[in-house]
């Protein structure tokens, strides 16, 4: 696909996300500005804790952000309600998880058909679609097996088939090869590349697997919750934790806890945290 034909499918602006452990804030994303164009096979690379999964989850509407915008297919997913997000995910986004995350009590075929039925397709139609995609990912003969009767690689192929069954425009894959051996992992990457090229589905993959990074049409480097141009670049630390992790976003009970935490102790904790970042 030529670059001229590629429209922006995902766009984030000044995205911030903070996790809290008790009264301690941990900034996960710090001002992420990202554009993904249609049909890209983009890989989010970075060390563990760099914010890859968090960014993927926010783009997929699985998690909310503290600040900023996340437009997916022209719609700000952060402004949607829970029910809207569910419908949006079902129609537009396919997920592939590190741990496959198949439904244990359903067969491979039923796992794939499940999402089609959620879309309102009939049982028969859904099973036909499931058979088609299981053949596409080369495990059509294993459709009647349950997840616990499949190898890790086979389970991940079922997960890919499930992600594709609703014919989404975007596939978000979080460390899809992390639980696979290198050969199976490479086969999965080839499969995803083939599907990206034939279906023109946009893939956004978080991974620190060198094979995945090598296959990427674009590599996005994340470090300490910020996009960097090179791994040598040292990201700017947050100016203040209060600005990155505003207390007003916390639940009322947590805010009360802060009120009763001795100020000196909190300042000391924050100083330690900030110095660790810098």
């Amino acid at each position: 696909m030529s670059e001229a034909n590629q429209s922006t499918i995902i766009q984030t602006r000044d995205l911030h996300k903070c996790y809290w452990v008790g009264t301690m804030p941990y900034p996960a994303l710090h001002g992420i500005d990202l554009q993904i164009r249609s049909g890209e096979f983009a890989v989010l690379a970075g060390r563990s804790g760099s914010g890859k999964s968090t960014l993927l989850n926010i783009i997929g509407g699985l998690e909310s952000a503290d600040r900023g915008q996340a437009e997916v297919l022209g719609e700000d997913i952060l402004k949607m309600g829970n029910s809207q997000r569910s419908k949006f995910r079902l129609t537009n986004i396919g997920f592939i998880f590190q741990a496959y995350n198949l439904i244990r009590v359903l067969s491979a075929r039923e796992n794939v058909a499940y999402v089609c039925q959620l879309q309102g397709k009939s049982k028969q139609q859904s099973l036909e679609i499931a058979n088609h995609w299981l053949h596409e990912v080369e495990i059509g003969h294993l459709g009647y097996r349950r997840p616990d009767q499949l190898s890790g690689g086979q389970q991940q192929r079922v997960a890919v088939a499930r992600a594709l069954a609703t014919e989404p425009k975007i596939i978000l894959a979080d460390e899809p090869t992390a639980n696979l051996d290198s050969t199976t992992g490479r086969h999965l990457i080839e499969l995803m590349q083939r599907l990206n090229q034939t279906l023109e589905t946009t893939f956004l993959i978080s991974s620190h697997d060198p094979d995945v990074k090598q296959a990427a049409s674009r590599l996005i480097k994340l470090s300490d919750g910020q996009i960097v141009d090179s791994w040598d670049e040292i990201p700017q630390p947050p100016r203040s934790l209060e600005a990155t992790c505003p207390l007003r976003n916390r639940p009322f009970t947590e805010r009360l806890r802060h009120l009763f935490t001795p100020r000196r102790k909190a300042r000391q904790q924050n100083r330690q945290r900030t110095s660790r970042h810098s």
Binding site: G60, N82, S86, R89, L90, F95, F97, N101, L118
Partner: peptide
């Protein structure tokens, strides 16, 4: 809990 999380992630609504 994890299974419910997966079901939600792939598009199952809270009501479902």
């Amino acid at each position: 809990t994890r299974e419910f999380g997966i079901l939600m992630a792939i598009g199952t609504s809270r009501r479902q």
